[in-house]
Design a protein around this nucleic acid. Structure first.
Lengths: 186, 186
DNA sequence: TTTTATCTACCTATCGATAGGTAGATAAAA
DNA sequence: TTTTATCTACCTATCGATAGGTAGATAAAA
């Protein structure tokens, strides 16, 4: 992927994460790179195309940072601590909300293809968490594990949103710690 | 307050809750009421004024529905169940995200006065929850209670956001139930 | 007579998008 | 070796639409 194309996606991501789907424009991205907005359209014919690329890259980076659940010697608590750390790292790097959490609210504005990426982002988070929580407890009550996984994801997304507003990672840290402490497979 | 003014706020709230700060316009509101956009400016000189009124009314309605924490005979669990119910009712009525959760992400777009309302909304939620959790346990560890309150708020905001995306209250119900179960003052 | 609530008729700024064009690289064909 | 054809990555100029906002008129209500 060309330098310019990558740059466009990076800038778009930052703009979306601080202002939502309507918070970025081809002109603003172009201005930041030093090209014309028509040239941004060359790389991404429509806004929908660009938003889709941004969402897909975000999702991919997120799961790369996350890795597979339950590596050697992991237990539920350390897995959840790691999960929380990924959110914290993402916040520290950008000081803004989770792209998917951000866009999840804006149902009225989103192209269907972008919505699908969000749904799959949530699905895969749930799967990862269910595995991490069940780790080492194969007799775990799967309905309860699912509830717990939902709680962890929802709590971290919510905490990230508050952290973005407050411009402080206090909430994210606090929620991340507590969640690792109280969620267990038994 | 005149009928029109109330109508403007109501429609604006719904539009903000499904599309964020940039998701509503004076023209769209006017069209839905059947007046001209200039007439909306008569009631709210600027977009900032309207957004502020919307946020304040949302906050007020929310805490009216919530009531005071720990009424007669309440315990932590029933208080938290009630708290979760307020989120669920709000979702059922609008099938969209929490106004404050929604706006919390959009730091880059928000006028400072609106941001202040969001911060106070979160503050008051925290206070309410800390009281509800401490209820009947005056020896509770206040640092831990604060963490728990943060978790509850973050989890319900996050769940509301997912529910808005999925257009289903499954997440909200699931998270609400689990939170009431596992958060206790001791 | 003053206030309230609306209107018409504008404004400037910006949006996403498109048409048409060009410099320079590449690679196959003559 | 030169010509032809194609591609990449940009450009300028412009489109229709929409954004928030304003000046000034009007007419009913207080």
């Amino acid at each position: 992927m060309s330098d310019t194309k990558t740059q466009i996606i990076q800038i778009a991501e930052q703009l979306v994460r601080s202002g939502g789907y309507n918070g970025f424009s081809f002109r603003e991205i172009a201005a930041e790179i030093g090209i014309r907005s028509a040239s941004v359209h060359y790389h991404f014919p429509s806004k929908e195309d660009l938003a889709l690329a941004v969402a897909n890259r975000y999702k991919q980076n997120f799961f790369e940072a996350l890795g597979d659940p339950a590596p050697d010697g992991g237990n539920t608590k350390s897995q959840l601590a790691h999960y929380g750390q990924v959110f914290q790292d993402s916040f520290k790097a950008s000081r803004s909300a989770c792209l998917c959490g951000m866009l999840s609210n804006e149902i009225a504005l989103l192209p269907a293809v972008v919505k699908q990426v969000l749904v799959s982002f949530i699905d895969e988070n749930l799967k990862w968490l269910q595995q991490a929580i069940t780790y080492g407890a194969s007799d775990a009550d799967s309905a309860k594990v699912k509830q717990q996984a939902q709680l962890v994801y929802a709590a971290l997304e919510g905490a990230m949103s508050v952290s973005a507003l407050m411009q402080s990672d206090e909430w994210l840290q606090s929620v991340s710690n507590l969640v690792a402490e109280i969620v267990t497979p038994d």
